[in-house]
């Protein structure tokens, strides 16, 4: 009777699509009906691009096993590229905005390759430092260029970002990265994390895959930057400093390096938590840094470790559990 099993890939896609649509429907209805006020809706949008940032950093940090400390640099490149694009063109928003996001992502990805190719020849610590240096260079350069507005920043972008398109891009990011991880290419990336020398000996082109993962990670950071730029409608280079990179890193580390659901939960939680604890705003970064240290000492794998959530599997397990007592009774 209850013999539905989500074994085939197709049925699982359908199940996941239905769940995503349902989630979107519920949230959208809540915003439209005013159950979630403007402020809460804005928070939800912030959480949306934080999720994109955390998930994309997780690809480089959790799955590839490197430690990039310049994620905010890629985000700023994407933000500025897409903002300059929409400012320079007079097109219909429906055409202009997705194009701007993709351009922001692509420019960030190009920077990802540019910095990744040399940096990835180096091992963990050096990579961390070189990406940190790169993030700082980007910030200083943006601060000193005239077409980026310098220290005054960029203004006048149209407010294109809304709940719907942020939700869509967050889902696309999750979909692309989770399918990437499960593909042949993803297994190559995981192999590099486990043992780079062994991976190379097994014929995996390590430099190619490291650069590739880095570029994908940068691409989505750039997209998130574009969404951010058209949500706040003002860009200030000082917001993309080392602290922003660390903030994203805290989300990934807290959720678990190598767990997408972990990144989503942590990004969501760490976006809402400071808002709930408004009066403790000055302690926010102290709490963040303590969290980092305590998580590393007591549970280095983060909240979720490398566990990843699969809706199809969860539903299947549920059915099996439901059926189990019946079977016993029959026998």
């Amino acid at each position: 009777m209850m013999n539905i099993r989500f074994k085939s890939t197709k049925s699982r896609y359908i199940l996941n699509a239905a769940a995503v649509l349902a989630l979107y429907g519920v949230l959208y209805a809540m915003i439209e009906n005013g159950i979630l006020n403007r402020y809460a809706a804005g928070l939800l949008m912030t959480a949306g691009y934080n999720i994109i940032l955390a998930v994309s950093l997780n690809l480089a940090a959790g799955f590839l096993g490197q430690l990039p400390l310049g994620h905010a640099g890629f985000m700023s490149v994407g933000a500025y590229a897409s903002a300059l694009f929409t400012l320079g063109l007079e097109m219909d928003g429906a055409v202009e905005f997705p194009l701007a996001l993709i351009i922001g992502g692509l420019v960030a990805a190009v920077f990802g390759v540019l910095i990744g190719l040399p940096a990835l020849r180096l091992s963990g610590d050096y990579l961390a430092i070189i990406t940190l240096g790169f993030g700082e260079i980007i910030r200083v350069v943006i601060l000193n260029l005239s077409f980026t507005g310098g220290a005054f920043g960029l203004q006048g972008m149209k407010r294109y970002s809304n709940f719907t398109n942020i939700f869509i891009f967050a889902v696309i990011t999750l979909f692309v990265i989770s399918t990437l991880i499960k593909s042949r290419h993803g297994r190559a990336i995981l192999a590099i994390r486990e043992d780079e020398i062994a991976a190379e000996a097994s014929g995996i082109p390590t430099t190619y895959y490291k650069t590739f993962a880095f570029a994908v990670s940068a691409f989505f950071a750039g997209v998130a930057g574009g969404l951010y730029a058209h949500h706040l409608c003002i860009l200030d280079p000082s917001t993309f400093g080392f602290m922003k990179s660390v903030e994203i890193l805290v989300m990934v580390v807290l959720g678990g390096m190598g767990s997408l659901i972990g990144s989503v939960v942590a990004a969501f939680g760490l976006t809402l938590l400071p808002e709930l604890l408004r009066e403790f705003a000055q302690y926010r970064i102290i709490v963040y840094s303590l969290l980092l240290v305590l998580v590393m000492i007591f549970k280095p794998s983060g909240l979720f470790g490398r566990y990843d959530f699969s809706l199809g599997k969860t539903v299947d397990d549920l059915f099996i559990k439901l059926r189990a007592p019946n079977k016993k009774g029959g026998a």
Partner: peptide
Amino acid sequence: LITAIGISL
């Protein structure tokens, strides 16, 4: 490395 960053912050 992450611990060191945490202590620094």
